[in-house]
Design a protein around this nucleic acid. Sequence first.
DNA 1: AGTGTAGGCCAACACCCGTTGACTTCTTCG
DNA 2: CGAAGAAGTCAACGGGTGTTGGCCTACACT
Lengths: 191, 191
Amino acid sequence: MATGAETQAPRRRSDATRAAILEAARERFASDGYERATVRSIAHDAAIDPSMVMRYFGSKEGLFAAVVDVELDFPDLAGTDPGSVGVVLVRHFLDLWERDGVLRTLLRVGMTNSAGADRLRDVFRSQLVPAARSFGHPDAERRAALVASQVLGMAVVRYVLRLEPAAALSHDEVVAWLAPTVQRYLTAEEP
Amino acid sequence: MATGAETQAPRRRSDATRAAILEAARERFASDGYERATVRSIAHDAAIDPSMVMRYFGSKEGLFAAVVDVELDFPDLAGTDPGSVGVVLVRHFLDLWERDGVLRTLLRVGMTNSAGADRLRDVFRSQLVPAARSFGHPDAERRAALVASQVLGMAVVRYVLRLEPAAALSHDEVVAWLAPTVQRYLTAEEP
DNA sequence: AGTGTAGGCCAACACCCGTTGACTTCTTCG
DNA sequence: CGAAGAAGTCAACGGGTGTTGGCCTACACT
């Protein structure tokens, strides 16, 4: 979706405020979760009045929807070498988790908020399942779910729980360990 | 820890109430998360007054600590055949997740509440890391973290997010797919 | 039977939340 | 310059929260 307005030149004075609110909200939601991230605290971070949040996004729910409404542009796995799909996918996920906080926000909020969980399931269905279909197995959904379990799990221990040994792993180490797993889930004939 | 009192005969009249509060709290925390599980709703489920919760557990935080303060008795991996440790561990985890709601509660709450995250890290450190040491690799902590990422990830997609394909998997299917992964994380010489 | 005490309820407290509407300030353009 | 409208502030609302203390009730023991 990613509601328009960025197609037109951003001359409106309010665009800066809008962006500030969105950024503050993204960080608060990611670090505090949906309930503890209060409209007041977000407004404080963005250095504006709480009522501005309502004016721009209608409600707290609307603000969350706006934060979470971004394209995640998965790589097209159809073109890549089937032998290195694990590496490609894991590396892409690492980038995605660390680029901006959107996925972390989604993960954290998705644990307690149904709108967050819905959006997360949406990403799974619209991005990961199609990618899993490239390998011709009839149970692509199951394979995608297995991949999701490993990738989300690493995100949980690394970014949310911050388990020391997991958070300390370099990107290369994460790829080295997880890629074979993901590869197997997607391409193996049987467990 | 598991605070005593169950060593003495449970003749106190209040023990039933105490247990009712604990059970209601466990379910509410597991299904709603820490913030949305209100003391009032828990008291309602336990059919008592909210003030009783305070009398027995001091505060909402105290109640949560009591809910989460249970032994998880991991299997001792030292005795089991090193070739089937993946199967044993994954099956044990499935039992643990589904026996009572404590681990689900911990997972959900650990995402937003620091006390929950602490307790989860505690379980990791005191149970999973020692188990990982059985295999003589110097980086046992890292191996344990990898196992945690896969096992927690499956719990997230299965019990919290309820991703359809993952929730529909039978125990045997989960074991068949995850056991080789866990086995490799624990025993492989290198990625 | 009478009394001390543990168990339980009720009403209220102070606080924080999301949200609202009226008011002021700044910007822009005729 | 002056007016129109956007951008932003302020104070308040109704409601829900965790928590408290006073009061009532029912049981155990002498």
